[in-house]
């Protein structure tokens, strides 16, 4: 992996004798979007809260920006960090602008930052409206604006699209996607929605029952999904026996065509050549891949979680 901004070692959290987070070692690379995936109750929010120092780990270490985090240096580390944890936080009696002013005062930032972040989240037109009158989408955007104050190097977003309508989700997604490119921000984003993570993340960490069951590039995860090759010809029966005789592969017949086990590119090309040499017309060669949901479920099954 690239240079790692967040690193945890055997991070554990025990609640009432139950391991909610179980010895996880996260590696979040710099300048990338790290999707933290898992079903509800898997331990995502607990992990995020531990990363922010909101709760103390029962065991393990957390390093952010190369510094081991503890009670004393927590606030100084978090000065370079923006966060949005679970539901958006706001003061309903204050306007959007005033809400951000509170963060500026506490973080010792100039008020000019407010206009900048409001324009990033496209909320300039609603800055003088009371936060209690905002829609959920606007509250989430206000939360994101808050997290962006001071151009943080690291953003921790816990389910930022929760409760948003499809348009809001799309807007939030494109906003998040643009941040590493424009500002070099590293983003760790948690969600239980696999499709969403697939669309925004460069790296994926999958957590289930408090344990990390996968952690690598999204491409690696997608590679795991390639499980078979389907070939459609003008004579599938003949093609099947040709493959069996010449390639030493046992094909399966289905309504969609001949199903072959997953092969590398060279073997696929040899198979196609063999069929052509036997005067079989090939209509289509397709890669059957599992979607992320299927991969995730098979991983969970494999890990017995």
């Amino acid at each position: 992996m690239d240079n790692q901004l967040i690193k945890t070692q055997e991070l554990t959290k025990i609640y009432h004798g139950r391991k909610v987070v179980d010895n996880i070692s996260l590696c979040v690379p710099e300048g990338k979007i790290y999707g933290f995936l898992g079903p509800n109750g898997a331990g995502k929010s607990t992990t995020m809260k531990m990363l922010l120092g909101l709760i103390d780990p029962s065991g393990g270490k957390i390093s952010i920006f190369g510094k081991e985090m503890n009670r004393k240096n927590r606030i100084s580390i978090l000065k370079q960090t923006g966060s949005l944890i679970e539901s958006p936080s706001y003061y309903g009696n204050l306007t959007g602008y005033e809400n951000l002013k509170i963060s500026c005062i506490l973080k010792k930032l100039p008020f000019s930052e407010i206009s900048r972040v409001l324009s990033v989240v496209r909320m300039e037109g609603n800055k003088n409206k009371k936060a209690s009158q905002y829609s959920l989408g606007m509250k989430q955007r206000l939360g994101l604006a808050n997290a962006l104050l001071g151009k943080p190097s690291l953003l921790l977003l816990d389910e930022p699209t929760n409760g948003l309508d499809p348009a809001g989700i799309h807007e939030m997604r494109s906003l998040i996607r643009s941040l590493p490119e424009e500002y070099g921000t590293t983003i760790m984003i948690s969600s239980h929605l696999l499709s969403e993570m697939e669309q925004v993340s460069d790296y994926i960490g999958i957590i289930s029952s408090g344990k990390i069951i996968f952690q690598d590039k999204l491409l690696k995860l997608q590679e795991l999904g390639s499980e078979s090759i389907i070939i459609n010809t003008d004579d599938n029966l003949k093609a099947s026996s040709v493959i069996k005789e010449n390639m030493n592969i046992n094909p399966e017949m289905s309504n969609n065509g001949i199903i072959l086990p997953f092969m590398d590119n060279t073997t696929v090309s040899q198979t196609v050549k063999c069929l052509v040499n036997n005067n079989i017309n090939i209509y289509r060669v397709t890669d059957k891949t599992k979607n992320l949901e299927e991969i995730y479920l098979s991983m969970v099954k494999e890990n017995g979680l």
Partner: peptide, 9 residues
């Protein structure tokens, strides 16, 4: 406003 988490950061 569920602000304690925000403030604690």
């Amino acid at each position: 406003g569920n602000t304690y988490k925000w403030l604690s950061c």
